[in-house]
Simulated assay, not measured.
Amino acid sequence: MHEARLLGFRTLLYKEVLRFWKVSFQTVAAPVLNAILYLLIFSHVLERHVTVYGEIAYTTFLVPGLVMMSLLQNSFANSSSSLIQSKITGNIIFVLLPPLSHREFYAAYVIASVARGLFVGCGVLLVSLPFVSLPITSPGWILAFAVLGGGLLASLGVIAGIWADKFDQLAAFQNFLIMPLTMLSGVFYSIHTLPQVWQEISHINPFFFMIDGFRYGFFGQSDVSPWLSLTVVSVSFVLLAVLTLAMLARGYKLRA
Score class of each variant (00 low, 15 high):
L243Q: 08
A77W: 01
S86F: 03
L40R: 04
R5S: 15
A144M: 14
I56L: 06
M183K: 10
L184G: 07
L134W: 10
Y14C: 03
L66A: 03
R215D: 01
I136D: 00
I84N: 10
G140Y: 06
M210E: 12
L96A: 07
H2L: 14
A57F: 08
C122N: 03
F20H: 15
Y252D: 11
L181V: 04
F94P: 02
F145A: 09
F145L: 09
G54Y: 01
P195F: 08
A249V: 00
S133Q: 13
F105V: 07
P98G: 12
L243T: 13
V132E: 01
E3C: 00
A77V: 02
S222H: 11
F219A: 13
S75K: 04
R116A: 04
P31L: 12
F173E: 04
I88T: 06
I93C: 00
F214M: 09
S43V: 12
F131G: 04
P206S: 02
I211M: 13
L228Q: 14
L6R: 11
N205E: 03
F218E: 10
R255I: 15
V28R: 06
L254P: 12
L71H: 07
V187K: 08
P31R: 04
R48P: 06
Q199K: 10
L62P: 02
A160F: 13
A30E: 07
L184H: 02
F131L: 13
L83D: 06
V232Q: 09
L126F: 14
C122M: 15
P206K: 04
L13M: 05
M183W: 14
F173I: 09
L62M: 05
L129K: 00
Q169W: 11
A172P: 00
A108P: 02
N205K: 03
Q199F: 09
L152Y: 11
L13D: 00
V17E: 00
M68F: 13
F207Q: 03
L33S: 04
L240Y: 06
M1Y: 01
V197R: 07
Y58W: 11
T137W: 09
A30T: 15
L143Q: 05
Y58V: 12
L12S: 13
A77C: 01
V233R: 09
A146E: 06
L134S: 11
G220C: 14
W21F: 13
E16D: 14
A4D: 03
P99A: 05
R48N: 15
V224E: 09
D223Y: 06
N175Q: 08
S234H: 10
L170F: 10
N205G: 05
F131D: 01
G123D: 00
A160P: 11
L71P: 10
D165E: 15
A256N: 08
V120P: 06
Q174V: 05
F25K: 07
H192Y: 08
G217L: 08
E200H: 15
F131M: 08
I211A: 09
S75D: 06
P99Y: 03
N78L: 12
I92G: 08
Q169E: 15
T51Q: 14
G150W: 10
P135N: 08
W21Q: 05
V23E: 03
G161H: 06
I88P: 02
L194T: 04
S202E: 01
S81I: 04
F94M: 11
Q26Y: 14
S128V: 02
L129R: 01
G149C: 11
A35V: 10
A35G: 09
P64V: 09
F131Q: 02
F61T: 02
V147T: 07
F214I: 12
L245T: 08
K22W: 07
L170V: 04
I56S: 01
P195V: 09
N205M: 03
